[in-house]
């Protein structure tokens, strides 16, 4: 963590390139906070009527009981949706998505996954995402959109009937919502491990450089 304590003099002496602009950093951490609230309260709701033969441990659920979990879930959803929408709009409008996440080619992904697994993936220039990052970040944006659409659909299966029908119907939307959550959890684990393995990427997401 010593890399976090860069002194003011160092920063001003060598004006480093901004890797993560302020809007990305703010929205990233707001999203992280909202997403964790959504996951923990979602586990509480899941436990009221499990889809599979297991429940989430009570210690990792939010709200104390179903009613409390629902209150958290339907409060944090606003934070998640508004922040997520702002992120999508800004990401497209500034061209950041196109510039940072594209192109994604199968050969590039294969090459970089192999390199990553053998710890040969370079991180010299953090402003350019490698193919592993591109696939994960683009993929998690798609999953984020899906989890919000299934969630809103299940919230309003009559008023927004067309939305649940996009996913089959109410019960199938529930499964899609669950598997999106599972994907986000898997992403979260990989994402945090990789960020810790390359601490300067974590620093860039905090102070920008």
């Amino acid at each position: 963590m010593s890399s976090l304590t860069v002194s003011d003099e160092q920063v001003s002496a060598t004006p480093a390139k901004v890797i993560q602009p302020a809007w990305v950093r703010i929205m990233h951490w707001v999203n992280a906070f909202a997403m964790i609230l959504m996951i923990l309260s979602g586990w509480q709701i899941y436990n009221a009527s499990p889809l599979f033969g297991f429940s989430f441990p009570r210690e990792y659920t939010l709200g104390g009981w179903l009613g409390g979990g629902l209150l958290w879930h339907f409060a944090a959803m606003w934070l998640l949706m508004i922040n997520g929408l702002a992120y999508l709009v800004t990401g497209f409008a500034t061209g950041r998505f196109a510039k940072k996440l594209l192109p994604i080619t199968p050969s590039g992904v294969l090459h970089d996954v192999r390199a990553a697994l053998t710890f040969k993936l370079g991180h010299a220039d953090l402003t350019v995402y490698n193919y592993v990052q591109r696939v994960l970040y683009a993929g998690i944006i798609v999953v984020g959109v899906l989890i919000v659409l299934t969630g809103v659909g299940m919230w309003k299966p009559v008023q927004l009937h067309w939305l649940v029908m996009l996913f089959g119907d109410y019960p199938t939307a529930r499964y899609v919502h669950f598997f999106c959550m599972a994907s986000i959890c898997a992403f979260l684990v990989i994402h945090v491990i990789l960020a810790l393995l390359v601490p300067k990427s974590l620093r860039a997401m905090i102070i920008g450089r």
Partner: peptide, 25 residues
């Protein structure tokens, strides 16, 4: 108290979304 306030807000949002002519499938 905050969660209760948001829940009240959600009541209003749902009343706004509610279409009296939309039939349940």
């Amino acid at each position: 108290a905050l969660l209760a306030k948001v829940s009240k807000f959600n009541d209003a949002v749902q009343a706004f979304i509610f279409n009296p002519d939309a039939l349940a499938p």
